[in-house]
Design a binder for these strands. Structure first.
Lengths: 136, 136
DNA sequence: GTATTTGCAAATGATTTGCAGTGCT
DNA sequence: AGCACTGCAAATCATTTGCAAATAC
């Protein structure tokens, strides 16, 4: 993925810190501020938390990235993708996208409520295959 | 609703503060810590924020109530109900339950992922009928 | 060259903790 | 009686802000 272009398309100047943030975020899929800071410090030992927060906010503002609020966890951030749902394993904390038909749900909600729906935030919680077996 | 019984069933002692919290939470449907504190102070002028937080955490721990994390807003709390979805209007901040078929979505996700799914957190965002008209 | 971004330090805001006194069962 | 709950004050943690120096365009 071309992160320079991605930043320019969203009217943000290209800086090494921002390229690093995007690259780590894409690699991780979803990442918390804390984890992102720990990882990016390995590349830019001088980066400050304030810079990280400012950049996350700038990217949120331009919808380059999206904040996902997860029950009982710190918020996570992902580079914006088409509507999808998330799965959280309460055993091992695995957190992943799942490709299911979100549209059907949104359409139904829209019809019933007469809302014009633009965005969805869906997290399904439970236990992954591995953790189900271990908990027996 | 019998709040005393509800507390006892969840192994929590009955105190006037807790009865007040539950009553306000049920009346509001969903409420933030801030709003809850403002409202409960009218009844118990001496209640402290620390007590409110401790009680919310105790009730969360026993699954008497549930935390709902809403994009761009402070978390809200509701007394536990059967699985459902939420609607948020980005114009007027109306926040409400919507009765749609969450099961279909959960089943699909479960089949695809082999997760055992126990809980869902669903917020759909957009504009209510009124706000759609006003924004023209 | 100008405007924006960075990194630091300090400020703010939200939530938690420790403790002494009070209330529930 | 004994343990849990309350309220206060202080502590902690996450995030934001102001500012001077550095960087992007």
């Amino acid at each position: 993925m071309n992160y320079e272009l991605l930043l320019r398309e969203h009217h943000l100047k290209v800086t090494p810190q921002r390229l690093g943030i995007l690259s780590l975020m894409v690699d991780a899929g979803h990442i918390s501020v804390e984890d992102l800071f720990a990882q990016i410090k390995q590349e830019f030992s001088s980066i400050s938390l304030a810079t990280l927060y400012k950049n996350i906010n700038a990217m949120l503002h331009n919808a380059l990235i999206k904040e996902i609020k997860v029950p009982h966890m710190k918020p996570k951030y992902e580079v914006t993708k088409p509507p999808h749902a998330h799965l959280l394993c309460q055993g091992c904390n695995e957190f992943m996208d799942i490709d299911i038909n979100v549209n059907a749900l949104v359409d139904e909600a829209s019809k019933k409520s007469h809302y014009q729906l633009l965005d969805s935030s869906i997290v399904l919680c439970g236990y992954c295959e591995k953790c189900q077996k271990q908990s027996v």
